[in-house]
Simulated scan of single mutants.
Amino acid sequence: MNRMMVILFRLMLLIALLIVAFSIIKYFFHPLRKLEKAHGQRQFFFLDDQKDVRKNFSLTYKGVMFEGEKYMGATDTAFDIVTIYVWTKDYNALQGLTREDFQFIEEDIHVRYPQSAIEWKSPIKEFLRDKK
């Protein structure tokens, strides 16, 4: 009976270690962690689930976190994402971004959603309109 308890305890300990190892591995490969890391390093990173139209995408560029909302509609050939609204919650972080930076972001979005029209929300919309 005592030997059986030791074996059971070892088995439970092994299962606990496997669960902890799996959780650590899952944490390091989670896409949100990659987004936060790129944001902290002021790099470009695009996080999106293209299969889920209702899920917004996030991207970070030069230390600014942007969010995009996708809307599906009919194109000439099929239903596709036709409109994307993009904004940021931290407008102070926009300091130093140029028109070329926003063009880079638009081009990268168009790579993923070629049929889409990109609409920027205020104050980015006014900045881009005034620069033309």
Rank of each mutant, 00 (worst) to 15 (best):
E119D: 12
A38V: 03
I118F: 12
P31V: 00
D90N: 12
F66E: 02
S23Q: 13
G73V: 00
F22C: 02
I25A: 12
I109S: 06
F29Q: 11
A21N: 09
E107D: 12
D90V: 07
I118Y: 12
R33D: 04
F46R: 04
G63S: 05
T83L: 11
L32I: 00
L13P: 09
L32S: 07
A38N: 03
N56D: 11
I124E: 10
L35I: 02
K51R: 08
K62M: 10
G40N: 08
S58D: 07
A78K: 15
D49C: 00
Q43R: 09
K55D: 14
F79R: 06
L17Q: 05
V82C: 06
I124S: 06
D130H: 10
H30C: 04
S122N: 08
A16D: 08
R33L: 03
K62N: 12
A21F: 07
Y113T: 04
D101P: 05
F79P: 03
K70S: 14
A16H: 07
I81C: 04
L35W: 05
L14Y: 14
F57S: 02
A117P: 03
M65T: 05
F46Y: 09
E106M: 04
F127D: 06
D80H: 07
K34P: 01
R10D: 12
I84G: 02
K125Y: 14
Q95Y: 09
L47C: 01
K125S: 12
L97H: 07
